[in-house]
């Protein structure tokens, strides 16, 4: 019988997806913050894998970089963090993601 086709994880630029979404960014007032950046250095950083908007990325120094502009406000990063290191709030009223279809 035919050999199985190997699954190759697709390379996806999530920013292209987020480009279709509508936002009202609260400039200079990020609704999510890292409590202690030092604590991230020795962590497996599940936030960087699980965030559906790619807001979290591992830096060359092994730390974490957070840019909340594309946040979909799901709450995943708060729950996957083993160190309770994510200070997570909803954006101010009217700011953040604005779903057209939901």
């Amino acid at each position: 019988m035919n050999a199985p086709v190997e699954f190759i994880p697709p390379r996806i630029n999530v920013e292209e997806k987020l480009f279709q979404d509508r936002y009202r960014v609260d400039v200079g007032r990020p609704h999510i913050q890292v409590r202690d950046p030092q604590a991230c250095k020795h962590c497996a950083k599940p936030c960087a894998v699980c965030c559906p908007a790619g807001c979290w990325s591992v830096t060359e120094q092994g730390g974490i970089d957070l840019v909340v502009d594309g946040c979909l406000e799901c709450g995943t990063c708060r729950l996957v963090c083993d160190h309770d290191n994510v200070d997570w709030n909803y954006p101010r009223g009217g700011f953040g993601i604005l779903f057209k279809f939901g």
Binding site: F7, P9, P10, I12, V14, K17, L18, Q20, D21, V49, C50, C51, P52, A53, G54, L72, C74, T76, I97, F99, K100, F101, G102
Partner: peptide
């Protein structure tokens, strides 16, 4: 695997792909 890789895997599956071929993606949500 990231959530968007999982989603792309589903969209590329040979049973799903022909159903959405040529569609215009207008929103991504979570």
């Amino acid at each position: 695997l990231t959530p968007y890789q999982l989603l792309e895997g589903l969209k590329q599956h040979p049973s799903v792909k022909p159903l959405i071929e040529g569609a215009e993606m207008k929103e991504y949500s979570a």
